[in-house]
């Protein structure tokens, strides 16, 4: 595979030119279009990757979501904890499932909606909060995904693990109990486990 552009004295090119207001909007549009259209190819690229490296990536992983009432959505390293928490919760016949989202941009809204299916409750676990915003990034994205839908699940957004605070299976179980135990728990975001004076 040859690079598209090279720093070659025989064929001089300028890379990283100065783009001011006359082109910047167009540059952003091109970036946005390119990222949107990557949705057409990422599956093929990941298949090619798995052939070469033996490791398969998917836009999202699901675990026991088919018949679940409540679905946890997590990202990143939390997923293994969530997976074992779900398996333990299933032992006590609670209908919980879990989705681990890997693809962040372009945001796979349709795929995520399909994976959530008819679940009534969704618990989004975020690990960051932009102060003053209306929730964690994943929570906001999910709400935006359902924004124009008449039928949508209840979405709670829990922000945990800030600064590396421990998230155990117990944490996720407690979150689930809080949601189940309070029918009128407002659908908003919660800084979980925060000490308040």
């Amino acid at each position: 595979m040859n690079p598209l552009r090279m720093l070659d004295p025989e064929l001089p090119r300028s890379i990283g030119a100065f783009g001011a207001q006359n082109v910047y909007t167009e540059v952003k549009m091109a970036q946005d279009m390119a990222l949107d259209q990557s949705a057409l190819v990422w599956e093929d690229v990941w298949n090619e990757f798995s052939e070469k490296f033996g490791r398969r990536y998917k836009s999202l992983d699901t675990c026991q979501t088919e018949d679940a009432d409540t679905i946890f959505i997590t990202m990143g390293s939390l997923s293994e904890t969530a997976r074992s928490a779900i398996i333990e919760m299933r032992e006590t016949e609670e209908k919980v499932g879990f989705i681990n989202l890997r693809l962040w941009r372009p945001f796979p809204g349709k795929i995520l909606k399909k994976a959530i299916g008819n679940a009534k409750k969704v618990i989004v676990i975020d690990r960051m909060l932009s102060p003053g915003s209306q929730g964690g990034p994943l929570g906001l994205e999910l709400r935006a995904t359902y924004c124009n839908e008449i039928k949508h699940p209840k979405i709670w957004n829990f922000i945990v693990g800030l600064g590396g605070r421990l998230i155990s299976r117990q944490t996720l179980k407690k979150i689930h109990e809080d949601v189940r135990g309070n029918k009128h728990l407002p659908e908003k975001y919660y800084l979980y486990d925060a000490r308040v004076k």
Binding site: M6, L7, D8, P9, L11, P12, R13, S14, I15, G16, A17, F18, G19, A20, N22, V23
Partner: peptide, 12 residues
């Protein structure tokens, strides 16, 4: 952009 004065490979 889209002009350049360089006759050499240039990277910024």
């Amino acid at each position: 952009y889209p002009q350049t004065a360089w006759n050499m490979p240039w990277l910024h």
